[in-house]
Design a protein around this nucleic acid. Structure first.
Length: 356
DNA sequence: GTTTATGATTGACC
DNA sequence: GGTCAATCATAAAC
């Protein structure tokens, strides 16, 4: 004979109530009219229903009275039976949810941006990458970089403090509910599995709140990032030396002003800019030169002279090294022909310069 | 305040 | 993927 059967045998004439719908007042009234035990059960049920309308102290007193009531085991067994029926209907409910892809996306993003996870990586790396893309001078980049990092650290701090609050609230609420259920398990049948399920429900609810926090944090990071990237649109002119290096290359390769990848890298290194900036510069230069050759003629002459002077100097040094006794024999003219695919068939211009 | 110069972006093309 | 051409956005010059 199991516990429930034993309990049931202790309930003289209560079998009918166990089968009845206890939620149905008519049914309860019908049973009450059957005699004293039924009336007791009816009283208990009414007391339970009334508990919610009472003050906390009254409810506690009533609860205590209920726990000590001689018919409590009978009520307990009735509840067991009802539960046995209802639990059957919810057994099919899935126990575990698969990981939410949305939350996984948010987690990955927060990790990549350096908001969650270890503090040293992520954000600074992202900032460094963005700063590199910005291509400003190292000083400017580091100012923007530190600004970005400071703001990201602020977001990170808020995120973690909010997360901590949520976790604390979740843990407090879970404990509260578990205590409540344990307490209630004295009056009604509650299995540990049910408590577990309830905890899972609470965690799900709190994780949906957490998702909102993660979502708004992601948005904040995106806004910060877009502002930071917008900042790179603040154009800064290359320094004079960089422009000279680029112009020298351009005008000395006027016949084919398309630097190879290696040449671009070399120029980028010399100028302290990125390869893509070199490409941009040459793209702009080619198109602007082509559009207005006249305007650039003077500049072209200037750089042609400069190149010629440099070449002559190198040549002079070489010949001096070969025949040191040879004296400088006075003035020379240097003629430079610059055929240019950009010039098309318009002209190829000559630069004459006087050299001492 | 307006104009010019210039670095960056974008879309089409090869 | 690299280049051209148009365009944007902003620094610099006036």
């Amino acid at each position: 004979m199991d516990d429930q059967t034993r309990m049931m045998t202790g309930l003289t004439g209560l079998g009918g109530l166990a089968q009845a719908d206890v939620g149905d007042p008519d049914s309860v009234r019908k049973q009450q009219s059957l005699g004293q035990p039924q009336q007791d059960i009816g009283d208990i049920l009414q007391q339970i229903m009334a508990i919610t309308d009472e003050s906390l102290d009254e409810a506690q007193a009533r609860k205590h009275a209920l726990n000590c009531h001689r018919m409590k085991p009978a009520l307990f067994s009735v509840l067991c039976e009802i539960k046995e029926k209802t639990v059957l209907s919810i057994r099919g409910v899935q126990e575990e949810d698969p990981p939410d892809p949305q939350i996984m996306r948010l987690d990955n993003m927060l990790l990549a941006e350096g908001v969650s996870g270890p503090e040293k990586g992520g954000g600074s790396a992202a900032a460094a990458a963005a700063a590199a893309a910005a291509g400003g001078s190292p000083t400017d980049s580091s100012i923007e970089h530190s600004d970005y990092r400071a703001k990201l650290a602020q977001i990170r701090q808020i995120y973690h403090s909010e997360l901590e609050k949520y976790e604390q609230a979740c843990s407090e609420f879970t404990n509260h509910v578990m205590n409540l259920l344990r307490e209630q398990s004295r009056t009604r049948p509650i299995s540990p599995k049910e408590i577990e399920r309830m905890v899972a429900i609470i965690h799900r609810k709190f994780s949906s709140i957490q998702m909102q926090l993660k979502q708004s944090t992601c948005e904040a990071v995106m806004i910060l990032r877009s502002r930071f990237l917008d900042a790179r649109r603040k154009r800064r002119n290359f320094n004079k030396q960089a422009t000279e290096v680029l112009n020298e290359y351009f005008y000395s390769h006027l016949s084919n002003p398309y630097p190879s990848e290696e040449a671009k890298e070399e120029l980028a290194k010399k100028c302290g800019i990125t390869v893509s900036q070199v490409s941009n510069w040459f793209g702009n230069k080619r198109i602007r030169y082509k559009k207005n050759i006249g305007k650039f003629q003077e500049e072209a002459n200037l750089y042609a002279v400069k190149t010629a002077v440099d070449a002559a100097n190198v040549s002079a040094q070489a010949s001096q090294a070969n025949s040191p006794a040879t004296p400088n024999s006075g003035n020379k003219y240097l003629i430079i022909n610059i055929p240019d695919r950009c010039l098309g068939d318009k002209t190829s211009f000559k630069i004459s310069t006087f050299m001492n």
